[in-house]
Design a binder for these strands. Structure first.
Length: 568
RNA sequence: CGGGGCAUGGCGCAGUCUGGUAGCGCAUCUGCUUUGGGAGCAGAGGGUCGGCGGUUCGAAUCCGUCUGCCCCGACCA
């Protein structure tokens, strides 16, 4: 491709709308342009990257035996009513009416459609196992689209659905997809981790997420290098502390703590650490509010809290009037002593002694509080987020915390949809069996953003080889004044293409600095400079995007070096 | 949806408080010079100042209202 014919415009300045690096670079390098909130046009340069991702995904899915099909983006409401999700899915689902006022939605996912296909097409166990997939545009009316292509409303997803006769079969299909996903992200050259996950809205039992590691990631993941443990922090379990609880050494005292409404304020006021305090959170319950008690420095985990019997879903903090009604005082001084509502203590509180709690009285706390003496001995539950240094479940190591971008998610669905929608086959005994399903998603567009988050420097993008829009960029110096340079550049351009490489020839009549800056911004991994200076020795200057120095190569050396990077 | 902010040429911004000729940098176009790290000089084009309504002799500027976008929270590939 000749730069002069590629219609690419790059930006020197960062558009104000872009917050994170990948979004900024995608706009500056001309990969995407925004149409409206959460809607993007993929410009020619960006589309080349997107297609590379799709191709890797397709190849590995095909290799795993999955069959590509293409379902409609627009889906009739009836299917969603059958599965019960028409009402469950809420405002995330973009709904519309056709001219006959029939209800439709723009598909955010395709379990309903594929289950409908399955119940029509699959009659016999002999047709199983089978796995269908598609690469397709989805729409989810996100509450807050952000980070460019990473959380857009319209996006491209590869979604796959497996069908098996029994649960063992489903688990095999799931393992196959686990392996295929691992192969995909390895081939794409991304650093990633597979973590245990909450199955959320989609439903089902087992589920795991594939996260590209990046500091800007929206998810926190807990992992341990000593064993293979890795979990989304939402799901990472904590246990009752192993150690003995120290014996009480202080008497319980009621003290004045004017204005100390937060753990931080309380900590400063009394001169203790947050680990010596308990915080009591009042949340909405199913029929009455519930108190959740955590160590002062710990954070409540919403997913875990919602699983506590009697706690309302979604987790909602009680408003001030409710807190007043439960504790008898202003928010900020709640404590577990004397509460009439159900109280749950986190595991980590079990080995605490001589701690500080709110007194359910304005500007007042208790110090020197102890279980078994001042409060009833608690039955503890898992309520908090794990933190770095916590023991791994199983106890073979300690946890570290990293941030990740969720690019893939695999689920064992079981018979949820096949039961709701009546999808079954006859087994070898002629008996009707509900199909066991799995579903598997990859955020194709999100991968592009995630790859940039993980691969960039202050000058721009650094594409991993499997994703790059061009393998090599040719930068002729003074091509428009030097016939020698022009001829050498043109002939090299032709030969590199002949080798199967995707080549960008920067044939603009621009100064070298401009060409270097753009080549680095758009992140082409290999660069060859063509100049009179080096042509005198029959050489070209080669530099990899990650190199700090260039080196001179003879023409044949350059062709050979790049040959192995030719797209296959 | 709750909280905060912004809206002025393609992009980044000033001007708004204190009403009076719409401005700067980048980008674009032309010419000349320059040519190994986002060049210099000279010139040019391009803006109903987000929309509607109001106040005023006069509104980018003051008032009202609507819309769009961004950031913080719940959600997710």
């Amino acid at each position: 491709m000749r730069y002069s014919e590629f219609g690419l415009t790059t930006l020197k300045e960062v558009p104000a709308e872009a917050e994170i690096v990948s979004h900024q670079l995608m706009l500056r390098a001309g990969l995407v342009r925004r149409l409206a909130s959460g809607l993007f046009t993929w410009m020619p340069l960006g589309l080349r990257v997107l297609r590379k991702v799709e191709n890797v995904v397709r190849e590995e899915m095909d290799r795993a035996g999955a069959l590509e099909l293409l379902m409609p983006a627009v889906q009739p409401a009836e299917l969603w009513q059958e599965s019960g999700r028409w009402d469950e899915y809420g405002p995330l689902l973009l709904r519309m009416l056709d001219r006959h006022e029939r209800e439709y939605c723009f598909g955010p996912t395709h379990e309903e459609v594929i289950t409908d296909i399955a119940r029509r097409e699959l009659r016999s166990y002999k047709q199983l196992p089978i796995n269908f997939y598609q690469v397709q545009t989805k729409f989810r009316d996100e509450i807050r689209p952000r980070f460019g292509v990473m959380r857009s409303r319209e996006f491209i997803m590869k979604d796959a659905y497996s069908f098996d006769l029994d649960e063992d079969g489903m688990r095999i299909a799931y393992q196959k997809m686990h392996a295929a996903y691992t192969a995909i992200f390895e081939r794409l050259g991304l650093r990633f981790r597979v973590v245990d996950a909450d199955s959320g809205e989609i439903g089902g039992s087992r589920s795991q997420e594939f996260h590209v590691l990046a500091d800007s990631g929206e998810d926190a993941i807990a992992y341990c290098d000593a064993d293979d443990y890795a979990s989304n922090i939402e799901m990472a379990a904590t246990e009752v502390p192993a150690g003995e609880r120290p014996a009480p050494s202080a008497e319980m005292q009621k003290i004045e703590t004017p204005g100390a409404r937060t753990i931080e304020a309380l900590r400063e006021f009394i001169g203790i650490t947050a680990e010596q305090t308990l915080k009591t959170l009042i949340v909405e319950g199913e029929d009455q509010p519930v108190a959740l008690v955590l160590r002062g420095d710990h954070e409540l985990n919403a997913v875990k809290a919602q699983k506590i019997p009697g706690v309302a879903t979604p987790l909602t903090m009680a408003d001030a009037p409710t807190v007043r009604q439960v504790t008898g005082c202003e928010p900020g001084y709640a404590g577990p002593i004397g509460l009439e509502v159900p109280v749950y203590f986190d595991h980590a509180t079990a080995d605490m002694a001589d701690f500080v709690v709110g007194a359910n009285e304005a500007d007042t706390h208790f110090t020197g509080v102890n279980f078994g003496r001042d409060i009833e001995e608690p039955e503890t539950v898992d309520l908090r987020n794990v933190v770095a240094g916590d023991p791994t479940p199983g106890g073979s190591g300690t946890l570290s915390i990293a941030r990740g971008i969720e690019v893939g998610h695999i689920f064992q669905l079981g018979a949820k949809y096949s039961t709701a929608m009546g999808a079954s086959v006859l087994d070898s005994d002629g008996k009707e069996r509900k199909l066991q399903m799995g579903c598997y998603g990859i955020g194709v567009t999100r991968i592009v953003g995630a790859a940039i988050e993980q691969n960039h420097d202050e000058r721009g993008i650094i594409w991993p080889e499997p994703l790059t829009p061009f393998n090599v960029v040719l930068v002729p110096i003074n091509m428009h004044r030097s016939e020698i340079v022009r001829e050498a550049a043109e002939s090299l351009y032709a030969d590199l293409q002949q080798q199967g490489l995707q080549v960008l020839l920067d044939d603009r009549d621009a100064r070298p600095g401009v060409k270097f800056a753009d080549a680095e911004l758009i992140g082409i991994p290999h660069r060859l400079v063509v100049s009179e200076r080096n042509l005198a020795n029959g050489e070209f200057e080669y530099q990899h995007r990650r190199d700090t120095e260039s080196r001179n190569l003879k023409r044949e050396e350059a062709l050979n070096l790049l040959k192995e990077h030719a797209i296959n």
